[in-house]
Computed example of a mutant assay.
Amino acid sequence: MSSTFAVFMGLLGLAVGSFLNVAVSRVPAGRSVLRPRSACPGCATPIAARDNIPVVSWLLLGRRCRACRIPIPARYPIVEALTGLLFAAEALRFGWSETLPAALVFTAGLLALAACDAELFLLPLRLVYPTLGLTAACLLTAAGATGQWHRLGVTAACAVGAFALFFALHWVRPAWLGFGDVRLAGLLGTGLGWLGPWHLVFAVVAGSFAGLLVGLALMAAGRMTRQTRLPFGVILAGGAIAALLVGAPVVRWYDSLSDPYANTIGTSLTTGGHRP
């Protein structure tokens, strides 16, 4: 059942990824994501349904427009495939739970924002705020369905705390962080606070460490210098998605290091033993 559900969510993710590509192409330019229908940017020929199948159409067309043969950017199949894979992975991670809708909305929004930041060094408000609002609405629904209102309080605290911290960093050294990254931090606090504050910490640390490694590798290869600008939104989004998928075991491992009895609590509860 879980594998069937994951496949279904993966197919849904492919379709969502196709919509995300539309958003990435149009939102930074201030255009509607609903109208007009998708068309080739080179020759303005409307894209037929047979040429709009996620990933598959790009491959069958030889990566070029059917009408004018201009290249279709690789970003299109990459976003579609990533969305499908992440939706499937999160279906396996969370199952059919109250948390899953928020995780999917959060992930989709992060992918669109990361794509915009990678291409334009821009985190559009018209993507940040709808993602924030929809994620918060899903979490509010989850809290109402489960009665876990305290988790909603933690979520709000994480959102405010992350925004305040990044705002302070931006105020001290604007060259370090753009204000778009400050807004993104608030979104990260909302999406990860429901799982716990340490998931947010993991996202920032893991994302920053990965960005450092990538930067060092690019400098070693001569493809960037210390003055080269990196899209920090991509780094934060990657760390947040990693926190969603693998944050829980990492947090449990950290707890076991700080609390030598953490690994025995479950055994004690089931056997009737008592912790000293």
Score class of each variant (00 low, 15 high):
residue 1 M to E: 01
residue 2 S to F: 07
residue 2 S to N: 12
residue 6 A to H: 04
residue 6 A to G: 01
residue 9 M to W: 10
residue 12 L to I: 15
residue 13 G to V: 07
residue 17 G to Q: 01
residue 20 L to N: 09
residue 20 L to F: 08
residue 21 N to T: 14
residue 21 N to C: 15
residue 22 V to W: 04
residue 23 A to T: 10
residue 23 A to K: 07
residue 24 V to F: 11
residue 25 S to C: 11
residue 26 R to L: 13
residue 26 R to T: 12
residue 27 V to N: 05
residue 29 A to Y: 00
residue 32 S to A: 14
residue 40 C to I: 14
residue 41 P to W: 04
residue 42 G to E: 05
residue 50 R to M: 08
residue 56 V to P: 00
residue 57 S to A: 15
residue 57 S to D: 12
residue 63 R to C: 11
residue 63 R to D: 03
residue 63 R to S: 14
residue 64 R to E: 07
residue 65 C to P: 04
residue 70 I to G: 01
residue 70 I to W: 02
residue 71 P to R: 14
residue 71 P to H: 09
residue 73 P to G: 07
residue 75 R to F: 03
residue 79 V to P: 12
residue 84 G to W: 06
residue 85 L to Y: 05
residue 85 L to K: 11
residue 89 A to M: 04
residue 91 A to D: 01
residue 92 L to E: 03
residue 92 L to F: 11
residue 101 P to N: 04
residue 101 P to K: 05
residue 104 L to S: 10
residue 104 L to V: 11
residue 105 V to M: 02
residue 106 F to N: 09
residue 107 T to F: 09
residue 110 L to H: 04
residue 110 L to Q: 08
residue 111 L to P: 12
residue 113 L to G: 07
residue 113 L to H: 10
residue 114 A to I: 07
residue 115 A to D: 12
residue 115 A to P: 15
residue 118 A to F: 11
residue 118 A to V: 02
residue 121 F to N: 09
residue 123 L to E: 08
residue 125 L to S: 13
residue 126 R to W: 12
residue 126 R to M: 12
residue 126 R to E: 13
residue 127 L to Y: 07
residue 128 V to A: 14
residue 128 V to E: 10
residue 130 P to L: 13
residue 132 L to D: 01
residue 133 G to L: 10
residue 134 L to T: 08
residue 135 T to C: 01
residue 136 A to M: 12
residue 137 A to H: 07
residue 137 A to T: 01
residue 140 L to N: 00
residue 143 A to Q: 06
residue 143 A to G: 06
residue 143 A to R: 05
residue 150 H to I: 09
residue 151 R to C: 00
residue 151 R to S: 05
residue 152 L to S: 03
residue 153 G to F: 02
residue 154 V to S: 03
residue 161 G to S: 10
residue 161 G to H: 02
residue 162 A to R: 00
residue 164 A to H: 01
residue 164 A to R: 01
residue 164 A to L: 08
residue 164 A to C: 14
residue 166 F to H: 11
residue 170 H to P: 00
residue 174 P to V: 13
residue 175 A to L: 03
residue 177 L to I: 00
residue 178 G to V: 09
residue 179 F to S: 05
residue 180 G to A: 08
residue 181 D to T: 05
residue 182 V to F: 02
residue 187 L to C: 09
residue 187 L to I: 02
residue 189 G to A: 00
residue 190 T to R: 02
residue 191 G to K: 11
residue 191 G to C: 12
residue 191 G to N: 10
residue 196 G to L: 00
residue 200 L to Q: 05
residue 201 V to R: 02
residue 203 A to H: 03
residue 204 V to I: 12
residue 206 A to F: 14
residue 207 G to T: 11
residue 211 G to A: 14
residue 219 M to G: 05
residue 220 A to R: 15
residue 222 G to F: 05
residue 223 R to A: 13
residue 223 R to D: 11
residue 224 M to L: 11
residue 224 M to E: 06
residue 226 R to D: 04
residue 226 R to G: 15
residue 226 R to C: 10
residue 227 Q to L: 12
residue 230 L to M: 15
residue 231 P to F: 08
residue 235 I to Q: 07
residue 236 L to D: 02
residue 237 A to E: 06
residue 241 I to V: 15
residue 241 I to C: 13
residue 243 A to F: 04
residue 244 L to Y: 02
residue 248 A to M: 09
residue 253 W to Q: 04
residue 256 S to V: 01
residue 256 S to E: 00
residue 258 S to R: 06
residue 260 P to V: 03
residue 264 T to L: 11
residue 264 T to I: 03
residue 266 G to A: 15
residue 271 T to N: 14
